[in-house]
Amino acid sequence: MRTRALGAVLVKGGLVGGLAGCGGTQSALDPRGPAAATIADFSWILFAGAAVIFIGTMALAAYGVLLPDRTKGVPPIRFILWGGLVFPGVTLLVLTVATAMVGNAVDFRTHPEEPLRVTVVGNMFWWEVVYPDLPGGPLVTANELRIPVGRPVEVTVTTRDVIHSFWVPALHGKMDLIPGRMNRITLIASEPAILRGQCAEFCGEQHAWMALFVVALDPAEFDGWIARQQAVPEPPDPADEQLVRGRTAFLEAGCGTCHVIRGLAEGPYAAVGQLGPDLTHVGSRLSIGAGVLPNGVGPLAAWIAGVQDIKSGARMPSYSTLDGETLTALARYLESLK
């Protein structure tokens, strides 16, 4: 762990500093889980080794260039044999074994504790997150993966359209989401934190804005969050006309064709669509549009009226035909879904 201490010094010393602000860390050098920590340690060893070899090789070359035409003592063939074949041969043999061992150390498939199972489904350009076997029934949310600290989380990843890649650098490496395949990666968070992840496989026009937040919570808090998310949201207080108007607008504008809000499953405009993110508790999320805007009334209104402008190529049209009052009401209503 000494290497990580060194790494931490370098990080804090500003060499690789400037950690992310409100968005949560997305740095592989700032690990918040055992897998990323092991890989970070391994990385620091690799950097140190590479630096030593690089400086050594350059020193040999510089010696040859700067002190020319001396009999430099070493017969060239033996020099090549040791420097070019034996040294790398042995170093790489060690590295091959080390690679295998580090690979095993970050493979939590055989972890003794029963993992929390989560399915992450990629979409152009957002993430659907499903908790399939909770005691209170499955839970669907989007662009946000909340997990309990310390417990292994087996993430099954797949996709509804093109190839994406699931990457939360502070927890682990990448795992691709491939049509027709179910890949798995097991994560563990070691402390409560908000971490940012991002699609790492080019997936089309808005590949750049396909972010995902992982929120690691204390187990008790996590259970509380699950309970809140599983609850069906209360209908708005009839006294708050704007909220009522917002809910009506949501249904009448046809939002339910693509989105689900649990509790609005009845009637001609039922919100049961499966094409976009589940909005049941959209107000409780950290971001909207898969990381493109923070959550809030303002961003929600901007998003609804100007999706194509904010995130061209997203599968949702810009609803700029709504009148001003309706738009603000709709944004407030969605924001109220905590």
């Binding site: 602000g21 805007l293 923070p294 809030g296 961003p299 998003w303």
Partner: peptide, 23 residues
Amino acid sequence: TANTHGCGGCHTIPGIPNAHGTV
């Protein structure tokens, strides 16, 4: 710049990265 209130989502604001909304 932090865009906490989503201003840039609707407005184009000179000097602010990612603020080129047209709403």
